[in-house]
Design a protein around this nucleic acid. Structure first.
Lengths: 255, 255
DNA sequence: CGCCTGTTTGAGAAGACTCAAAACGGGTGG
DNA sequence: CCACCCGTTTTGAGTCTTCTCAAACAGGCG
C-alpha cells in the first residue's frame, strides 16, 4: 500500500509552472528553478499512500497528474478528509512545520507527482522571493478553501454540504481542464465522500439519491453531471475562488 | 462598530518577534525589519471589526495584545468562526490572495494590533527569506489547526468538540503566557462558542452544563478552569502542536 | 460464474435543533 | 443604593436530521 515507484525524468511542462503562470508571468530564472525542482517524478497508483500521519516525513510533492487527498485519522478509527489536491498543487505543506506528518496523503486516482525536499523549498524561498510570495498566496487560498469546507460542515445540512463539495471539485478541475464542463469522474467511494463532508456513507447514499431525484445531479457509475449548477450555487452560496489569486504584493524582480 | 483608532508608536517588544524567536534566533536585520513593520499600532475595543467579509482590504494585522477571531457569514444569516488569533499571530493572511476580504475579523477582547500592508509583507519576503520561511511555516501550522477543528466538527460529538476547543485555547494561551495555567478568561458568548464548533447556543449551554456536572470543567462567570485536562485529552485525542514549529529547512543567512 | 466491494433501502434510536419561557447578571440611571 | 433593563444563560418540550444496524442489491473482476 505504501511507497511510490519509478523515478523518471519529466518531459511535459511542470504543472506548478503552468498553474503559477495563470497568476503571474514568470521570469526565466523562476521557471528554471521550478523546473529543476520538479525534475524527479514518481508514480503512485490509486489507493497508495504518499505520506502517513505521525510518520517522519521530509518530502513535499507537487501533483503533476491525477488526484490525491489528505486526511486525518482519529483515535476512534473514523477519518476526516481535509482537502483534495490536483495538478499544480503543492502537497504536504501542512507537515512542513514538524518532522512528523500531520496527516495521511493518499492517491485518489493514479497520480504522477514530483518530489521536493523541504530544504529544496527553502532554497527557492531564498533565491526566488516572488515564488515564495506566490506559494504563500496559494497557501492562503488553501486556507480559505478549508475554511469554506469548515463552514459548510459546521453550519449546513447534508444536501448543501454535498452540493458544495461537488461544486468545489468541478470548479477546481476546470482550472486545469480549461473550458466549461458540467460533468466529471469522481473516483471516490461514498465512504470517502462522507469522510470529506462529515456524514456517514449511508446518509451520503440517501442524500445523493434525493438530489438525483430532484434533478440537481445525474449519475452514471463514477461519472457525475451537475444538471442544475445554477440552482446548486444558489442553494449553497458557493463562490468560485480559483479563478484569481493575487500575487502583485510581492515586489517584481529587478533585471 | 467598524474601524480602529488611535495610531500610536509602540514601546513594548513586538509580539511577532517574540513569537518567532521561540522558533529560531533572529538576526539583527530580521528583527529590525519586523520591528519597523510593526511600528504603527492600533487599538480596537471588544466587538469592533478589523476587517469585513467582501469588503476591499489591503491590510494585515499582527496581534500584539488581546484576541481576535475570524469568521465567515452565510447567506442564511448564520456564522462560522474559523479561527482565533492571539498575541504574535498574523491576521488577515487569508485575504492576501484577493482584494476583497474572505472573512470578517472581530476583536474578541480589547486588542492592540499593528498594521502591515501587503506590499510591506512583500518587501519582507524579498529582503528576509528566512522570515518568509518562518511565516510560511506558521501559515502551515494554522492550516493544521483549522484541520484539527474541521476534524472535530466533522467527526465528533458535542462534548468532544467543546473539550477540544477549550484545550486548544488554553494550549495556545500558554505559548505567550508562559507557565502552566489551568484556567483562563473566555470572553466569548455561548453563541460565539457554538459558531466556532458548529453547535447552537442552546446545545452549547446544555453540554457545558453536563461537562461541569461531570467534573471536567468548572465555571465562574467568564472564567473557565479545566479540572480534568488529562481526561479531556484522552477523550478527544488532542495534540498540542504549538510548542514547536520547525523552520530549519530555510537556509540560514550568510554573514 | 461467483466473489468482493460498494451502494441502496428499511426501521428504529440518538443527537442536535427549534421554539419558548424563565432565571441570571452586569451595568445604568434614578 | 436600589430598581430596572438588556443581553446571556438555563431549562423544558417536542421535532427533525442524521446515525446505527441490518439486509438486500448491483457491478466489476478474476
Amino acid at each position: 500500500m505504501r511507497g511510490g515507484s519509478e523515478v523518471m525524468t519529466r518531459m511535459r511542462q511542470s504543472a506548478l509552472v503552468s498553474r503559477l503562470e495563470q497568476y503571474l508571468p514568470l521570469t526565466t530564472d523562476e521557471r528554471d528553478a521550478l523546473d529543476w525542482a520538479e525534475r524527479r517524478e514518481l508514480r503512485f497508483s490509486a489507493g497508495q499512500l504518499l505520506m502517513e500521519q505521525d510518520r517522519p516525513n521530509e518530502m513535499l510533492y507537487i501533483v503533476q497528474q491525477g488526484w490525491t487527498h489528505s486526511a486525518r485519522r482519529l483515535v476512534t478509527g473514523s477519518r476526516q478528509i481535509l482537502s483534495f489536491h490536483y495538478a499544480g498543487d503543492l502537497v504536504g505543506t501542512s507537515s512542513i512545520a514538524w518532522s512528523l506528518a500531520t496527516n495521511t496523503v493518499t492517491a485518489v486516482s493514479d497520480v504522477i507527482v514530483s518530489e521536493l525536499s523541504k530544504p529544496q523549498l527553502g532554497r527557492i524561498f531564498k533565491a526566488q522571493p516572488r515564488l515564495a510570495g506566490a506559494l504563500y498566496a496559494i497557501a492562503a487560498a488553501e486556507y480559505v478553501a478549508i475554511g469554506d469546507r469548515l463552514t459548510s460542515i459546521g453550519r449546513m445540512g447534508a444536501e448543501e454540504r454535498l452540493a458544495l463539495l461537488l461544486l468545489d471539485i468541478i470548479a477546481r478541475l476546470r482550472v486545469t481542464a480549461g473550458g466549461v464542463v458540467d460533468s466529471f469522474d469522481l473516483p471516490l467511494t461514498q465512504q470517502d465522500i462522507g469522510d470529506a463532508v462529515g456524514l456517514t456513507k449511508v446518509h451520503v447514499s440517501r442524500t445523493l439519491g434525493d438530489m438525483e431525484r430532484r434533478g440537481l445531479i445525474e449519475r452514471n457509475g463514477r461519472r457525475i453531471r451537475l444538471k442544475a449548477e445554477r440552482e446548486m450555487i444558489a442553494l449553497t452560496g458557493f463562490i468560485d475562488r480559483y479563478g484569481v489569486i493575487e500575487t502583485n504584493w510581492v515586489p517584481a524582480p529587478e533585471f
